[in-house]
Design a binder for these strands. Structure first.
Lengths: 346, 346
DNA sequence: TTGTATGCGTTATCAT
DNA sequence: ATGATAACGCATACAA
């Protein structure tokens, strides 16, 4: 059976013997409208009978609402390939967005070439609001959106803007992670970033590392810093490079569990052991981290919660509710497992 | 600066001193239309000047194309939390979809309660086509869509339908995985599924396991079968249960690397070693699998490629191109690493 | 309580 | 080569 012509509200109106207005009033449950119960039922029955579903485009055109939320990711597609943080965000986002009858559109923008490309998505009114994960310092589109007061919630933070944000305190969390290693007696602590430093979170985490060292009277040694890029591969490569350098370290703070996974393998392949030879602290507390060997001590980022709160906030914004708590900060405690071992004896 | 009224094609027309028709003709690069070069330039300049972006809803309404592709996932949000396969799909999908000027909408439908809910998305013309990952036997919506000839590409397969599909041969791949273990001398081989058996891939993989056993003159022992549910946790729990049962096994085929990650940890926590006490073969070859300890031998599923081909195919379908190769099957070779050890001596 | 008329911003069909 | 004008399907102010 081929699908006949689309069924429109006119068809429903005809079938129920009323006007399109009445159909609209009934189906949208408009408050003020007084419809006789009997008519209401007839309309509903006709709509169900005909399998009527309002046309999204027509509705969007007239209501000026697409009923779609955009999740903007500023990276290359290949950088999401092994992103265990993203799937957690999707869990949280999809749950609440669906609950509200909205939908989620994923937009990925290459920060190298077209980092402001998502503005077009907004200009075209394709989406009603944006959740942006992993803001970068060089994102001028975000500043533009602030001027226009377009509904945006950041998963992360961007200095010098006043966007709504839901995040953890990356800097403090990193300090705590590194202080844990310091507390165990480590003096030579390497660091591998979670991403390149144009991402605000990457910079903040690196600063936290530095602050912890300085607070302990140590200073940052560039030779002990490696750079990750979201993936285990990047962690593997960075750790291999660190191990190949002429510097000694007994511990490493790796600002992403995904990256830590690769780093740990590199350590293993060099014939060294975690935590005996090198103690490890990660960041994110991904589902997989508890299953690493040894289980990874890491900063526990409540990713699903962050996503839930961000989307809940955005939805309120879309409804016109004003919020005065612009920056929500969730707790991110250290989750101690076995990758750090015991206190050093010497 | 607050945003003024949206700029419409009328504004551009006025600014360029032409009609809306001309603006549309120029901006959409309509082939047949003969526009004087001078006029063309003036229109383009005006559009750029005013920052004109066509309204998505208006365009969708008249063109009957939303320019959006839907990715349908039939599971609960919490089942995507640690799905390393999904991120690979996103990599492939986002890359080619963006290339074509389309967008990706993610729809998740709880198979328990509303497994046909995504039909509404289609009826509302919210999306132009569907990519469905992980079809289930009980998905009646898919059968309906087939009757309507709505553009659908399956990442996976659904028997008794003729939907376009891009997939691997799950059954044969599983046989190969298990035959690898048999070839190493293992006789008692456990199995943990990747998901519950309503997912066609899960059933196929289990059948492959069974076929391999039977071909080797062994028979399936229900006591040796556990059930996973996408996550490492489920693999951990399933393996713990198997180890607690009164059955012996020297190897296990785990039909998902994500699940295998948890299973491997369970083995370790029971004081056993991989591969010495239990050899392991996984399925998927996720980016993380190479970094497990020991690196996991697994079936290499070209997830990014599957996604690329599926979306490329769907886009062709949307353009009206007909394809006669309805079922694309990609290779999924066994990737041997260290989780199986050497041939058993006894 | 229900119907009529109008507008949303585009594209497409005709004229000119 | 360009411009009027009519859909597209819905929601809503206003009439009845």
């Amino acid at each position: 059976m081929m699908n006949a012509r689309r069924v429109t509200s006119q068809d429903v109106a005809d079938a129920a013997g009323v006007s399109r207005t009445t159909v609209s009033l009934v189906l949208n449950k408009v408050q003020g409208a007084k419809i006789r119960e009997e008519t209401r039922q007839r309309v509903i029955a006709a709509a169900r009978e005909l399998g009527y579903v309002p046309d999204a485009a027509a509705r969007a055109l007239v209501s000026r609402r697409a009923q779609i939320i955009g999740l903007v990711l500023t990276r290359r597609p290949d950088q999401v390939t092994s992103d265990g943080f993203l799937t957690q965000l999707l869990d949280g986002l999809l749950g609440v967005i669906k609950q509200s009858g909205l939908r989620l559109l994923i937009e990925i923008v290459d920060p190298e070439h077209q980092k402001e490309a998502y503005l077009e998505l907004i200009r075209a009114k394709h989406i009603d609001g944006v959740i942006l994960s992993g803001p970068r310092y060089d994102d001028d589109a975000l500043r533009t959106l602030e001027e226009e007061a377009f509904p945006v919630v950041l998963l992360g933070q961007l200095p010098d803007t006043n966007h709504y944000s839901v995040d953890i305190n990356n800097r403090v969390a990193s300090r705590i992670a590194v202080e844990h290693l310091l507390g165990l007696g480590h003096k030579e602590i390497a660091c591998i970033t979670n991403a390149d430093l144009s991402y605000t979170a990457a910079t903040e985490r690196l600063i936290g590392y530095q602050e912890a060292l300085e607070a302990a009277g140590l200073s940052l040694n560039d030779e002990l810093v490696g750079y990750g890029d979201f993936s285990p591969e990047s962690g593997y490569a960075a750790m291999m490079e660190l191990l190949g350098r002429d510097v000694r370290f007994t511990a490493a703070f790796i600002a992403s569990d995904e990256v830590a996974l690769g780093a740990q393998a590199a350590i293993r392949e060099c014939g060294l052991r975690v935590p005996d030879d090198i103690a490890l602290v990660g960041f994110d507390d991904l589902p997989l981290s508890r299953y690493m060997d040894p289980p990874l001590t890491t900063i526990s980022v409540p990713a699903v919660q962050l996503a839930r709160q961000a989307s809940t906030l955005l939805i309120k914004l879309l409804k016109g509710e004003k919020f005065y708590e612009r920056h929500v900060v969730l707790k991110s405690p250290l989750h101690v497992r076995e990758s750090c071992g015991a206190k050093l004896s010497n």
